[in-house]
């Protein structure tokens, strides 16, 4: 039996909105630590890993592990019926064939209830090892989104190069080339605008901008984004949520032929 109550439907609406163009059918794995999701896009180039810790819900109850196989297009249609401030409760029996969603609006005494039919999704699960990354960049998520969008106008790939001078996003294409260089920066009044670069060794990798722009749909979830890079391993783009919850994207690098 699962019962998970979110103070604001907005959190789940934004998470699903951020990943629905990358993955279609996902298992929401529910257990006593919370609700997790891991899914790859069809080309196996990008992976999304979401964790909504039980602390994000109140109350949260999950007696045994339940995998809720849900089509994100269907979930989006139902979540559209919830107002951002509605209280959202997810419910499911053990071995369920539907997941139940209840939306309550505090002031107008309105209660909506929806059932979504579940799917049997046989999804391969990738083991992602804890990694000591050579470079970790924490920066405003809106800034990263702008860089990716701007450079995507010139090229389909971006090289990200981290040295002790800073981090350089560079690209070149048919019309020419462009680059954006950031250095560590502290904004005392607005720490959410800080740029922090931790570097243990220089890193240079190339990635597809189409995927990075897609990941940036999550920018509304967190003011800061964390980029983790090491040579020859996938990029980690992490949007931290409250209560140690997170939305993470992994992207395989492009390598020169």
């Amino acid at each position: 039996m699962l019962e998970a109550r979110l103070e604001q439907a907005n959190l789940l609406k934004k998470v699903v909105d951020a990943i629905k163009d990358l993955v279609q059918d996902c298992n929401f794995d529910c257990n006593d630590s919370g609700i997790a999701l891991q899914a790859m896009d069809n080309s196996h180039v990008a992976l999304v890993s979401m964790m909504l810790k039980s602390e994000s819900f109140s109350p949260f109850r999950c007696d045994r592990n339940i995998a809720l196989g849900i089509n994100l297009t269907s979930l989006t249609k139902v979540l559209r019926c919830a107002a951002n401030e509605d209280i959202l409760t997810l419910k499911a029996e053990d071995a369920p064939d539907v997941v139940n969603l209840v939306f309550e609006s505090a002031e107008s005494d309105r209660l909506s209830e929806y059932d979504i039919k579940l799917m049997d999704i046989d999804q391969e699960h990738l083991g992602i090892p804890e990694t000591e990354y050579a470079a970790t960049i924490s920066m405003p998520s809106a800034e990263f989104q702008k860089i990716c969008r701007d450079l995507m106008a010139l090229s389909e790939s971006v090289s990200i190069e981290c040295t002790k001078e800073g981090v350089k996003f560079a690209c070149s294409g048919d019309i020419g080339s462009g680059s954006v260089t950031l250095r560590s920066h502290t904004n005392v009044e607005k720490p959410q605008l800080n740029v922090e670069i931790d570097l243990s060794e220089p890193v240079a990798l190339t990635f597809s901008l189409k995927y990075l722009v897609n990941f940036c749909k999550a920018s509304g979830l967190s003011e800061q984004v964390r980029l983790c890079l090491s040579n020859e391993v996938p990029l980690l783009v992490e949007y931290a949520l409250s209560n140690n919850s997170y939305l993470r994207f992994y992207l395989a690098p492009k390598i020169g032929d």
């Binding site: 790859m40 083991g127 395989a252 390598i255």
Partner: peptide, 14 residues
């Protein structure tokens, strides 16, 4: 042009 790697080459199914 550069070849796009896949995640399966980095992360194995546990």
């Amino acid at each position: 042009p550069t070849r796009q790697d896949m995640l399966d080459e980095f992360y194995k199914d546990p």
